[in-house]
Amino acid sequence: MKVFQTIIAVVLGALLIYAEADFPAWASSKSPANAGELSQYYIKNIYDETLVPNMVTAVLADYRGYDTLFETVVVFTAGLAIFAILGTGVMREKKTAVPAPKRIYSEPPFDLIVRISTRMLVPVIQLFALYVLAHGHHSPGGGFQGGVILAASFIMLELSSDLRAEAAKLTHRMSIWLGIIGIVIYAGWGTLSLFFGGHFLDYDMLQALFPLDPLMARSHSMLIVEVGVAFTVSSIMLLIFRQLVSGGYSIPDKQA
């Protein structure tokens, strides 16, 4: 059986390598991806239309903003799915092959070195996360990257001490609420421009709301939707970590 599978994999690889002969050479400017009209338009015109030096953030949050909105919704839905699979106390009543453990954690591990170093590092990590979020316009960064770093700081707090005590400080309900708030910020900002006569997520029209010209309105709106994305991504990543690590038992019994 394994031989059969290996043969399939090797045949697939050989077919792909045979198809490689027609691919354009690496890093050529004449390849269809690089010489296409859309790519050239973006490279030439992004600064003139949005005043944002980082082309990737401009395309992600403005030109393809609809896509990014639903990417955020996908992250939120994945968090909800994990919560529904693992975290609602469903596993405790069912008769299962592996019985539910009676005691999840022993004494919360108190280690002075870990406590002190976590205490030193977490504020710096959170500040760096906010820096990455705010500098998405000028350097690689933006909402997703900043949100993940922010989640990493909370995960570090939970790893270094008692998971249940830390989970009680930022409860599951609060995590899901923060995820919802992020999506509401993003979709709400897009809906706001409907009131001014533009399309959904058309940031040009928001110049009537603030005394700005359309280019700066687009640049600032990108920052606001990235903040929404960071809310959702950070809280859902934390939720995913908590559920996976504890097998769904990070909620105390009375909340389940």
Binding site: D111, I113, V114, S117, M120, L121, V124
Partner: peptide, 16 residues
């Protein structure tokens, strides 16, 4: 500085 703080801490906690 970050690597100096985090790497020996992780070594310590793994040994513990």
């Amino acid at each position: 500085i970050f690597i100096f703080i985090s790497s020996p801490t992780s070594t310590h906690i793994l040994m513990k």
